[in-house]
Simulated assay, not measured.
Amino acid sequence: MTKGIAVKRTSTTAGLLVALLAAATFGLSGAFVKPLLEAGWSPAAAVTVRALIGGIVLAPIAATALRGKWGALWLARWRVLGMALIGVAGTQVVYFAAVQRIPVSTAILVEYMAPLLLVAGVWVVTRRRPKVVVLVGSVVALAGLVLVVSPGGTGSLDVLGLGFAALAMVGCALYYVIAARPSRGLPPVAFAAAGLLGGAAALGLVGLTGVVPFAATFTTVDMLGSPAPWWVPLLIVGVLATAVAYAASITASEMLGSRLASFVGLLEVVAAALYAWLFLGENLSVPQLLGGLLILAGIAFVRSEKTEPALVEPEVALVETRVEPVETAKPA
């Protein structure tokens, strides 16, 4: 019994480490996409190429992981389609539609309220109120998120822009739900590769229809204070902030479940702020640092609820069914 508890704890710890890797690599995207945007790339074009590069990088690894069991892709076709259309393409499109109408910080704040949406969704579906530690963790993490993104309070907010941001929040929540679904034999890296390639195709089609601006320039860009070919930041984003990030995030979601993985995903915002400070020279304020600590505290609260049943319930069952062996086994 003790071994089973240790395995559960180790699995959660490993999942948290993978989720931290996902947040750290996802956070790189802002610092390295910004030079492309400043050079004339539209957000949709940058994201499309980013997803395509990520999918291509993961494709040979995915083929090796599948070991010829291509039927696993067919069995998971609806999950793959959901990841492509919602997790990769749809959420990105509505987010960019939001930032065209409202401040970026406000759009990020609304989108990253996805963990709270997941908590509320489970509450409604199961009709069971989340434990106090989850509710406290949600409030603490939200307070930290507000401090990190520092949403602007000036000017009137566009209702349609807020609506797009809310759709991005729903898409973000659904991403974690889809990522956490049972794999049915499909390796996470293969799922990530298929989702990215499908998402790139969907984004490309959206760009061709003209629903969102789709433009790219193939000149040198200003990256980290020095001129660089346009493909350098794209390669960094495609490999690290897309291929590695999506594969790690999906793996972590399968290990931790959608709720805990989504809370750890809030650290992506903290990582983005740190990278902007390191690479772009943007200010990193004391409230932002405090916000990062509050997000960590919120994750700790949610994790305590996640691990508590695994640590308590087996011991309760042991006492109820084997009272005498437990008592005699105790050291004198």
Score class of each variant (00 low, 15 high):
201 A>N: 01
120 A>K: 03
110 V>Y: 01
39 A>C: 05
32 F>N: 09
204 G>H: 09
240 L>N: 12
198 G>Q: 00
162 L>C: 07
226 S>Q: 11
55 G>E: 02
287 P>C: 09
64 T>A: 15
253 S>Y: 06
133 V>M: 13
51 A>L: 13
99 V>C: 09
193 A>V: 08
15 G>E: 13
266 L>I: 10
147 L>D: 05
227 P>L: 02
57 V>Q: 03
99 V>Y: 09
79 R>S: 12
89 A>S: 15
20 L>E: 15
182 P>D: 08
25 T>P: 10
183 S>Q: 14
123 W>I: 06
173 A>G: 02
311 L>R: 14
196 L>C: 11
156 S>G: 14
280 L>T: 07
277 W>C: 10
147 L>T: 11
184 R>I: 08
56 I>N: 05
316 V>A: 12
210 G>M: 12
234 L>A: 13
202 A>Q: 05
155 G>F: 13
285 S>Y: 09
154 T>V: 11
160 L>W: 09
283 N>D: 15
267 L>E: 14
235 L>M: 12
169 M>D: 06
16 L>P: 00
275 Y>N: 09
300 A>W: 13
21 L>H: 02
21 L>R: 04
74 W>Y: 15
153 G>W: 01
328 T>F: 11
250 I>D: 02
159 V>F: 12
99 V>P: 04
287 P>T: 13
293 L>Q: 07
304 S>Y: 08
153 G>Y: 00
279 F>C: 08
34 K>G: 09
162 L>N: 03
299 I>C: 05
179 A>N: 00
226 S>C: 05
291 G>W: 02
229 P>N: 14
315 E>M: 12
316 V>I: 15
112 Y>R: 10
168 A>G: 15
18 V>N: 02
324 E>M: 10
87 G>V: 05
181 R>L: 15
75 L>V: 15
114 A>W: 01
305 E>L: 05
96 F>P: 05
300 A>R: 06
188 P>S: 15
14 A>K: 00
236 I>E: 03
133 V>Q: 14
175 Y>D: 04
187 P>C: 07
168 A>K: 06
188 P>M: 12
169 M>V: 03
193 A>F: 07
17 L>K: 00
153 G>Q: 06
251 T>A: 14
238 G>A: 13
57 V>M: 04
317 A>F: 12
175 Y>M: 03
9 R>G: 00
263 F>W: 02
36 L>N: 12
329 A>C: 11
112 Y>F: 15
106 T>S: 11
294 L>D: 03
186 L>G: 00
311 L>A: 14
103 P>I: 12
311 L>E: 15
193 A>W: 10
102 I>T: 07
303 R>G: 06
68 G>Y: 12
126 T>I: 03
93 V>C: 09
294 L>N: 00
5 I>N: 05
52 L>N: 01
268 E>R: 13
67 R>G: 13
235 L>F: 11
46 A>D: 07
274 L>R: 10
15 G>H: 04
155 G>D: 15
266 L>W: 03
237 V>K: 02
4 G>F: 00
292 G>K: 11
46 A>V: 07
115 P>Q: 12
161 G>P: 02
80 V>P: 05
221 V>P: 00
145 L>D: 00
192 A>D: 04
244 V>I: 14
200 A>L: 01
66 L>T: 10
273 A>F: 10
5 I>H: 03
147 L>I: 11
88 V>A: 04
162 L>K: 06
135 L>G: 07
24 A>C: 13
115 P>R: 08
14 A>C: 14
